[in-house]
Design a binder for these strands. Structure first.
Lengths: 212, 212
DNA sequence: CTGAAAGCTGACCATACGGTCAGGATGCAA
DNA sequence: TTGCATCCTGACCGTATGGTCAGCTTTCAG
């Protein structure tokens, strides 16, 4: 009885190996930080010899950069919810949902991102000064418009955004703390739902945007 | 013209060197993470030869542990505000003030703490399961009482605490991001004040505890 | 079928790091 | 002054890590 292992096409091989490496790297970088992560560990987790990693990613820095950029993409995508919305209730609700979903589904990525920023964003500085700034300015403007239209109280849009980022990402970055305080168990579906509802309710009420 | 360099007493020497090392270590650990930090760098920053570090702190782990415990002390002290308060407005306001002050005065410590938790709290696990849990349970009870007394809305106390932690620590842990979005300048006195006021207002309003 | 390009990898290297230690310098109590 | 405990440090060591490379296997276009 032989393994089928149908011969992979070149394309597939490359794609699958890169995916496996990036996934393993995300986990290891999240758990150990850039300095604490080792190529050997990533290789083991990806099920590949170390030298093979260097075939796809020349250096540890390059691999790290790829991981961080991946996260940044996901992070930015959550923004779309914001734009389509007609008011703060819709927009902020959707954004909180999206970001909580990221915290739940990609906790490792979130941690890598947090780590990157905490260490002064050595890799992402340029992104932060261009893409992130533009994104933020755009959202600040939207929120400002909502205020002018009387759809919410006069709350500083920037600080409101920071609040949204902080509260949602906290559930990923400090997930271990939350689990410990939850009796060592990870949050259940219900608890995640409650967390989301709490955040939405407090913030929406707090900014004077009454839920419909 | 000779340096006075009055001969230090033993006690003073020990105290001052330990202080210098801990300060340097806090900064280096915050900037590079545990894995990325090197004893040599810490030594240089403290102005001491590397071997001298090992005279005071046997291993890197031990030094790190000391740094983390220091922060934990400060972190817990901010809790006192909570107890003395007669209601959510006083208590939560004071707590936000205290935690924002920590974020501003000890950003490095805050980052080290965040990093420790993100990496699964290898050093502080026992503290989290004992001291932190007790502290949290106590505060949950206080908030629960406030709710029963009709001083605020029925908001899950735990998620409220997470929200407080997240929003305040965000200004330290993600300080670099905030500075970048602030045109590369660190927040001014006024901006810090605005941040605090925004957080207080949104949360206190959000939980239905009207400011006096 | 064939040869060249892509994919793979064990063995190897240089370096940097945490930690050690022998022995010197310094303060301090008696 | 003396003796001792504390403080200090340059030189050293073993190890782990990021990275290299020569040469192998596999895919696939022509």
């Amino acid at each position: 009885m032989t393994e089928p292992t149908r011969p992979m096409r070149r394309q597939d091989i490359r794609r699958e190996n890169e995916k496996a490496i990036l996934l393993a790297a995300e986990k290891v970088f999240a758990e150990a930080g850039f300095g604490g992560a080792t190529m050997q560990l990533i290789a083991d987790l990806a099920g590949l010899p170390k030298a093979n990693l260097h075939y796809y990613f020349a250096t540890k820095e390059e691999l790290y950069r790829s991981v961080v950029q991946n996260i940044f993409e996901i992070w930015l995508q959550a923004a779309n919810c914001f734009d389509a919305a007609r008011g703060p209730v819709d927009g902020i609700s959707a954004y909180i949902d999206a970001k909580m979903e990221i915290s739940r589904r990609h906790p490792d990525g979130s941690k890598v991102w947090a780590s990157e920023v905490m260490h002064g964003a050595p890799v992402l500085q340029d992104y932060m000064e261009s893409t992130l700034r533009e994104w933020t300015d755009g959202r600040v403007e939207i929120i400002g418009r909502w205020i002018e239209e009387g759809k919410m109280d006069r709350v500083d849009p920037r600080h409101l955004l920071y609040m949204l980022w902080a509260t949602t990402q906290h559930y990923a970055d400090f997930g271990h703390q939350i689990e410990t305080l939850n009796g060592g168990k990870s949050l259940s579906d219900r608890q995640w739902r409650e967390a989301k509802e709490n955040i939405k309710r407090v913030i929406l009420t707090g900014i004077g945007a009454q839920p419909a």
